[in-house]
């Protein structure tokens, strides 16, 4: 079976190769010896580094030496000292012969007929398996709650009464706490960990700000509040270009015009950031008089249905 093929690379151990050693073989052998030695040294270094308290870079290098030494040693060994002459092997047909296929089909169909003789039982058995499969789907229902109004509402709309806006530590916010050049993130009081209720409080240039029709009283002085979650895929819209009054989402670069109802002006977002109706309570703290103007974050199939 073994042939010399096209006479390519007669192996050192191949027929006729015998025990003749060449300078090239010697060099290769020394290389293998060196590689395996490096590997052993690498393993020792690893042990020493570990015992001395560990150090990620040295551990990586030591591991690389230990593994690479073995790899290089075997590679050189295989390259120079293992039969490299090409061997030709016949490929046998993958498909079975016609007789084999016929015999198989006959055997299978014979079994099928045995089953078919009790056809009702077979049908009932399949029905039972199907019912079992359907029944097995029910436990999946336990994995999570029905997606109800949660996606459409936030804590701001829960109580039906004005809720104070607070910072991450739960401290209520006064209009005077805000400044023109910075973003303030706020939450409804008591819900500082709600992922869907984070709110941007912005102080805008009242001269240029154009409230949307019907939302003239949603601002307090020059303070306006929008949902912090991008209407594309729900990333926090965390970058504020003050001089342009643009909010930028760092995830996919959707850009919203603060002065014009946070309408998207660039990028993949299709809808404005929902606005939050603001007011101040008798103690002078900012409150939200209702929920956002629309469901927050990314869109979904029945977002527009109530």
């Amino acid at each position: 079976m073994s042939t010399d093929g096209d006479g390519r690379r007669p192996g050192a151990n191949g027929p006729g190769g015998g025990e003749r050693r060449t300078r090239r073989d010697d060099r290769a052998e020394r290389l293998v010896v060196a590689a395996f030695t490096v590997s052993i040294v690498g393993a020792l270094i690893l042990a020493v580094v570990y015992i001395a308290g560990g150090q990620a870079q040295l551990e990586g290098v030591a591991l690389a030496l230990a593994l690479g030494g073995i790899g290089l040693g075997i590679a050189v060994w295989a390259r120079y000292f293992m039969a490299a002459d090409e061997v030709v092997e016949e490929r046998h047909a993958l498909a079975s012969t016609e007789e084999e296929v016929t015999a198989f089909t006959a055997a299978f169909e014979a079994g099928e007929q045995t089953l078919a003789r009790r056809g009702l039982l077979a049908k009932l058995g399949l029905g039972a398996l199907g019912a079992l499969g359907l029944a097995a789907l029910f436990p999946i229902r336990s994995l999570g709650p029905r997606p109800g109004q949660g996606l459409k509402n936030t804590a701001y709309g829960d109580g039906g009464r004005p809720l104070r806006l607070v910072d991450a530590d739960g401290v209520p916010i006064r209009p005077a706490d805000l400044s023109r050049s910075s973003l303030t993130t706020a939450w409804p009081e008591g819900h500082e960990h709600d992922a869907d209720a984070s709110t941007l409080l912005l102080q805008v240039d009242r001269e240029r700000f154009r409230p949307l029709p019907g939302r003239e009283d949603w601002v307090v002085g020059d303070i306006v509040a929008y949902s912090k979650l991008c209407t594309h895929t729900g990333c926090p819209v965390g970058l504020y270009q003050t001089e342009l009054d643009l909010l930028l989402c760092p995830c996919h670069q959707s850009t919203f015009d603060v002065l014009n109802g946070a309408e998207p002006v660039f990028g993949p977002a299709a809808r404005p950031l929902p606005q939050l109706p603001l007011d101040v309570d008798e103690e002078g703290f900012l409150v939200a008089t209702g929920d956002f103007s629309a469901p927050v974050a990314g869109g979904f199939w029945d977002r527009g249905r109530t």
């Binding site: 990586g60 591991l63 690389a64 030496l65 593994l67 690479g68 790899g71 075997i74 590679a75």
Partner: peptide, 14 residues
């Protein structure tokens, strides 16, 4: 295998 592992360990370390 050993050379792949060595490369990955060098990357992971350095």
């Amino acid at each position: 295998f050993f050379l792949t592992a060595a490369m990955l360990c060098a990357l992971g370390g350095l």
